[in-house]
Structures are given as structure tokens and as C-alpha cells.
Amino acid sequence: MSEMKILDKTKLVEFLEKLMPDFEVTVPSYNNGNLSFSSMAHARPEIDFAGRPLVPPKEYFFPQQEEMFTFATKEGKATIKAHINKDKRVIWGIRPCDLYGIKTLDSVFLSRYVDSYYHARRENTILMGLNCNEPCEAGFCSSMGTGPFATNSNAFDLLFTNLGNQFLVEIGSKAGEELIERRANLFATASDEEKNKSNEIEKQCKQAFLYSVDQDRVKAALTKAWDDPLWAEESKNCILCGGCNFICPTCYCFNIEDIADEHEQNSTRVRYWDSCQLGGYTQMAAENTRKTQAERLRQRIYDKFSYVPARHNGAIGCTGCGRCTEVCPSEINITHILGILGRQK
């Protein structure tokens, strides 16, 4: 286990504020009762929050829309300009489910062909995780092995655990360590008692989950569930909003569009979050290779529990955060679907 520090809770804001000259410091904050990540430049950090923002922090690496290039064509000449964002950023308060989500995105965008846009944003961002003291209402991260405490020490630079009056801080990287060293006077070395307290919180939190999912049984069921009527039944109310994909911490699909200016001499290439639940996602000029909503829901579940693991050394593609259920206007419930699969013989 890496080295553990203790930070007095009242000192967290000071610690973060001192980073502001060098970084865009991003923190969970309440706005009209809604928790979301915001820049500390115009938002007060929420230190004692439960749950997680509805939109995960993946957008700091893979934004909802991102300008990739601008093209200018004039008199037989063409110029291409790429837009790579290298802003220095610190994000504090990332829940373990979302740390896991970022690792999943890493395995897509940073493997084989490296995505320069994602890479630049990721390189320039310090991740400060925050373990969960209580489960989310619809969450089942403990079943997915992604939470409520972060399990992969490569997934964060610093990891905070709320002990009541203090944070236990685990160092996950050199970059994280350097930030602590800069403000060494704020931190103390953690005692065994404090570490034990953290373990106790983790244990209690794990016991408090309302939902559990048997990952292995789900995976096994999927080998036989291709033609199961459940896909049609569970997708029948879907109105194709795309929300389940948009707010999913591991969803990375995108669409690329060129937007021409009025005179069509210049254009901008933009990529946008896309959704495999939309009919047009697989639409080609003459035909659509996934015609029904049942096939699309099946794709979403197979992707998370079968395809992503197959592509990425068995790592599950679902963090168990429960957001897709929360955001669904049609009340499609992932734990319900996984429950059906888990009960199949």
C-alpha cells in the first residue's frame, strides 16, 4: 500500500485554493440543488456530499462536443489546423466509479492508436478521487468491483477518504505526491488507527448497498441470451433519448460532423458524444444494421458485460453507478435487467 496522509477537513479548501494559480481546479458543487463539477473560480466546493454528479467527469477528457480541426480552403489550397486543449486541471472529488470510468476510457483512447485530444487533456489533469461513505440510491458499484472505495491505485493521483473531521489521503502517483509536498505543512502522516477507521467505513458502506449484481452469472447468461425476449420487453418504452450513453462514465462513442461556414470556404470538424441507442447510430446510406430497439438495448448490455471485457483483458464495462437508470425517461432499469440475466439458468 502506498503512503497515507491525513488532511484536516477544514484545510481542504486551502489546499485546493493554493493550486488555483497553476490549475483550473474543478470540484463538485451544488447549483439549485443539483450537484455538478464546476470550476472553483466560480463555485464553492462541496466537501461533505453524498452520491455523485449526474454527468460524470469524463467530459473533461472527452467533452460533449469538441472542435478537432478547422479547415480553410481557398484557390486550390487547403490548410488544416488541429485544436488540442492543454489546460492544466485538477479535479477533486471524483468518485471511485468515475475513476474506473476514466481507466476504461484510457484503455480505448490511449491504446494502439493514441487519440491526441484525449491524451493531451488526460496528461494535463490531476485526478483526486474521493471514496464513498454510503452507497448511491441506484448504485451497485460494489458488485462491479469498482467501488465504493477505489480499487486500482493507478486510477488516481490522490485518493481521499472522509473520516469525519479529516481526510485520509492515499498517494497514487508522483504528480499527486508533488502536490502534497508543495503544501506539506497541511498534511500529517496517517496512523494505523486512522487507516483502520477507513477500512471500517468501507466495510459498513459495502453492507449498505440495496442492489447487488452477480457479475459472473450475468456474463454466463449473456452467452445464451442473444435471442431472449427480454430485450424487446425491456426496451419497449425507450424513446431514444441517448441519455443512458451520454451520462455513462465508460461510454466513449462519438460522431464526427463538419460544419461549414456560410461561404463553405472554412469548416470546423467537431466530434460529439453519440449514442448506440439511437437508430441513426448504425444507419448507412442504404440500410440500418440494427433496426430495432431490442437490438440496441442488447448492444448496450453486451457491450458493457461482454464486448468491453473481451477487448480489454476482462475489465468490466459497467461501473455500477446507476446513472443510466436515473436519467432514463422510459424507466429502463439496468439493475432490473441484470437481475433477470442473473436469475437465468
Binding site: 440543488g33 443539483n34 449526474l54 424513446i239 433519448c241 441517448g242 436515473e326 425517461p329
Partner: peptide
């Protein structure tokens, strides 16, 4: 999420 009608949900 805090809005009583939209509840954190939206259509396309």
C-alpha cells in the same frame, strides 16, 4: 435532477 418534471431526464 431537482426539477419535478424533468428529474434529471431529457428527451433527445
Amino acid at each position: 435532477p431537482s426539477h419535478p418534471v424533468s428529474q434529471g431526464k431529457l428527451c433527445i
